[in-house]
Write a protein that binds this DNA or RNA. Structure first.
Length: 456
RNA sequence: GUGGUUGUAGCUCAGCUGGUUAGAGCGCUGGUUUGUGGAUCCAGAGGUCGCCGGUUCGAACCCGGUCUUCCACCCCA
């Protein structure tokens, strides 16, 4: 019997104790922020009915969905003709469930199913893993966590404001100082398409323009031409590509540039309102960057769109989101507007690691290790252990009777700061020897004194 | 999904144009010290060279397939 070495599925990872400590550090800051802003937690199942998921993310998205094979004889409904007509035709007969691809669609499904129970505006946050059958790369995994906060049931731009504020708070708590929150509005992009004479084709326009900082204006023009855009129309975009300056300067330029487009002007007004709200709140436009060429692929966005990039690191965007006027429409509930965004914890982790921004003392666990020499020490040690724990000191007793050196090595490896040593001297005098492993100082104290010393 | 790349000890990596028993550093275990860790010194354990097949007298090295890693495209957190 050959024993196979165990391995993980492509694009998935284990998280060891150190990694978990660091991940929880990030999770806690995000969770804290969501709660501070009045969001309530929601969890949904890892798997959804395939019919809930398909068709929401475009053709590309459908390909990236993980499908779950039906239980039992999953071939029982499949005919030879099905197999001949290919994978797509067979799929619905062998699989009716899939792993969630993001948190927004399950949220929309939840809202629709509970439309009469939820109070609007409904502010919820959700922190759960999602799965995508993508090719893994740096900062791109097949299983990763998203931390979503969305509001549905209101058109108020205060929601957009709050998203900016939450991003600022989280990044400031994480110690990130060099980043930018790119902000744009789908209506502005629609306006651009109108103004250059290709109304309704902003989606195509976006996909190409979005690559501007990556491949440059020249290549973007080539791509637009190959997508069937007229070079004369493309040329009209030149002033947009060259656009520089403060948010206000860019806005006032576009107000003029888009003056013939009703929807474009609406977009500019919305952006202006959000920035005004930011000022009213007492915050400012630091880190906020109105970026006319920010497009983002997701087709359901209709208003504001956000994306956060940390500068000078090799990771893509760490957060993104936007407003979608009719997300629940596909599930039969019309007229519910929503806006939301998501933090990518796994990418934030990679960024913090690359910038060495994790706090140094993360592996905080046990504070005191109780060590001893013989059986007599075990029973005395358990008494000491109970006293420590009753006083709220994280502590443990070395479970095996072992050489004191081995017990010390254990403490050292686990970065336990204090060791209590119990030998016949300590037991007879009803005391403990407390050693500070950092300084090497050791003193003999009563149990109570030792607890006080450790706590201070 | 398309193209490329990587895989040798727990970790980071050597290994000359295919040639006998595959090496180093770190880590690990034990000892120096049978009441004291992190330093030094000494000793030791540990490898189906990702997996399967092929070429060859002979393969870690060449060829094919497969899995994995990372990268570009696509897309995205």
């Amino acid at each position: 019997m050959a024993i196979k070495k165990p391995s993980l599925p492509k694009g998935t990872r284990d998280f060891g104790p150190l990694q978990m400590a660091r991940r929880n550090y990030i999770f806690d800051i995000i969770k804290d922020t969501f709660k501070l802003f009045g969001f309530q937690q929601l969890e949904t199942p890892a798997m959804e009915n395939l019919s809930t998921l398909t068709g929401k993310y475009g053709d590309e998205g459908d390909q990236l969905l993980f499908k779950i094979l039906n239980s039992g004889d999953y071939l029982k409904d499949v005919s030879p003709q099905d197999l001949e007509s290919g994978a797509v035709a067979t799929l619905s007969k062998v699989s009716e469930k899939g792993l969630r691809y993001d948190l927004t669609v399950p949220f929309a499904r939840y809202v629709v199913m509970n439309r009469n129970e939820v109070t609007y505006p409904f502010k919820r946050y959700q922190i759960q893993p999602v799965w995508r059958a993508d090719r893994p790369q740096r900062g791109r995994y097949r299983e990763f966590y998203q931390c979503d906060a969305d509001v549905v049931g209101t058109d108020s731009l205060v929601c957009e404001l709050e998203i900016l504020l939450m991003i600022k708070r989280v990044f400031s708590k994480l110690g990130l100082k060099d980043y930018s929150i790119k902000l744009n509005n789908r209506k502005v992009l629609a306006g651009l398409a109108e103004v250059i004479g290709v109304p309704g084709r902003e989606s195509e326009l976006c996909v190409a323009i979005d690559k501007l900082d990556k491949i440059g204006w020249g290549k973007v023009q080539e791509e637009l031409v190959s997508r069937g855009f007229d070079p004369k129309d493309i040329e009209k975009l030149q002033p947009i590509i060259d656009l520089k300056g403060s948010n206000q300067e860019k806005l006032s330029f576009l107000k003029d540039f888009l003056s013939s487009s009703e929807v474009g002007i609406k977009g500019i007004e919305e952006l202006q309102s959000v920035l005004d709200l930011l000022a009213s709140y007492g915050s400012d436009e630091t880190y906020v960057d109105f970026d006319v060429v920010l497009a983002r692929g997701l087709s359901y966005y209709t208003g504001a769109i956000f994306e956060v990039k940390v500068n000078k690191v090799s990771i893509g965007s760490v957060s993104g989101g936007g407003r979608y006027d009719n997300l629940t429409g596909v599930f039969g509930l019309e007229g519910v507007s929503g806006v939301g965004f998501s933090f990518g914890v796994d990418r934030i982790y990679d960024v913090l690691e690359e910038l060495d921004l994790f706090p140094k003392d993360q592996l905080e666990g046990t504070k005191v290790l109780v060590t001893y020499f013989d059986e007599e020490g075990v029973s005395y040690g358990l008494r000491v252990l109970a006293a420590l724990r009753n006083s709220g000191v994280e502590s443990e007793l070395y479970p095996d009777l072992a050489k004191i050196k081995k017990q010390f090595t254990y403490a050292d490896k686990k970065q336990i700061p204090y060791v209590i040593v119990l030998g016949s001297e300590e037991i007879n005098s009803n005391k403990v020897s407390l050693k500070d492993l950092k300084t090497g100082e050791q003193t003999t104290l009563s149990i109570e004194e030792a607890i006080q010393a450790v706590k201070s």
